[in-house]
């Protein structure tokens, strides 16, 4: 069983984690085409190589981001999402931006 290095809890058996899917930025839902939105919802990049993924340490419900080489099946780096998400995210509808 693989070991995953949780930024909060340290190295743990992979059994303690769930995979949360590819790390993909959500397009602005009100300013993107229907087909681009469908692509975001339904398509996976499935990259062979180094990818970013969401992982969750289940006993602590702690989410983090991992960089993993899908060819070698090796974790390269894991880190807290606050490295990427530093600020409060706001949503606006297009009509709201006009005013």
């Amino acid at each position: 069983m693989k070991i995953i290095n949780c930024p909060l809890n340290g190295p743990r058996n992979a059994q303690e984690f769930v995979h949360g899917g590819e790390f993909v930025a959500m397009p602005d839902p009100h300013r993107t085409s229907d087909s681009d939105w469908a692509g975001f919802v339904f398509l996976e990049n499935n990259t062979a190589g180094v990818v970013r993924e969401w992982w969750c340490h289940v006993p602590t419900a702690y989410w983090f981001i991992a960089e993993r080489d899908t060819i070698k099946d090796e974790f390269i780096r894991t880190f807290d999402p606050s490295e990427i998400f530093r600020e409060r995210v706001e949503f606006t509808r297009p009509e709201a931006t006009k005013s």
Binding site: V18, C56, W63, P81, S82, F85, V89
Partner: peptide, 13 residues
């Protein structure tokens, strides 16, 4: 619960 935590890890509310 897990999904709520995941979204707020991004939204930072």
């Amino acid at each position: 619960y897990r999904s709520m935590l995941w979204y707020n890890a991004q939204w930072r509310l």
